[in-house]
Amino acid sequence: MTAENTEKTSPVISREGSTDIHAKTAGSKAVKIILITVSVLFLFVMLVMPLITVIYEAFRKGLVPYLEAISDPDTMSALLLTLEATVIAVVINTVFGLFAAWTISKFRFHGKKVLVTLIDLPVTVSPIIAGLIFVLTFGRQSVLYPFLESIDFMVVYAVPGIILATVFVTFPFISREILPVLDAQGTDEEEAAALMGAKGLTIFRKITLPHIKWALMYGIVLCAARAMGEFGAVSVLSGHLRGKTVTLPLQVEILFGDNKFMPAFAVSSILVVLAVVILIVRSIVEYIGKRRGEK
């Protein structure tokens, strides 16, 4: 009896269930279209249009004025300084990020939460304030100033200051990317390797690095992108000495301030190209990382 009953009722339930699903999918289809349209429109207005404008303005007077604008010695030196600061910031933050992430995920110690919060500080503090902090720490009014002067090492209004600001602002990017991956991995594999007699460096190379490789690459890409575009902190520390302490974003500002719109857009286009290159690299890294992860 009971068996018969369940047989009778079960098709009814499934039929009801299927109509329900139809209703839901119909509803979600409309939602899907609306959401996609909104997102695309938003992205177009906020991102694509401005980018097109930059490129359009840069080439408005033709290719020759464009090439002239970007081959200006000040612009070239700004490009070199930007690349220099970016490379140094990426190297320093990779080393620091690895150490910090490793320390945080593999050891238990007091004040761990404080350290995690401190790492995030640079993203939460306004870059202008970050710049001011360094001016106060290394500038004329600082107690460190006489010492820095005696060894002839200028930070404020000099290249070291620009690098320092860039490093500070891009501080969390790499460690933030690695941390969750390291946390998820746990410490078992490292402990197993240590028990078999492997030393720290071997453990890192053979066990940890293969695991965090893709997260690390992704972090480096993000860090590089942020380092190239940094404006606020660098602006405070730079002093705007043309051809000496001006990075690409600052150069754009200077040109714009001088009412040289076409050259300003031309220099901006370099940054746009760099950003697009980084985005492509990012997508490739993400794609490969995902494929490896699935395997």
Binding site: D188, E191, A192, A193, L195, K206, I207, H211
Partner: peptide, 19 residues
């Protein structure tokens, strides 16, 4: 630990997943 000459089997096995 590395010099005690002890073999250890972890609960989760902790096999090296990239090897």
């Amino acid at each position: 630990a590395s010099e005690r000459g002890i073999g250890f089997v972890f609960q989760s096995y902790a096999l090296f997943r990239y090897m």
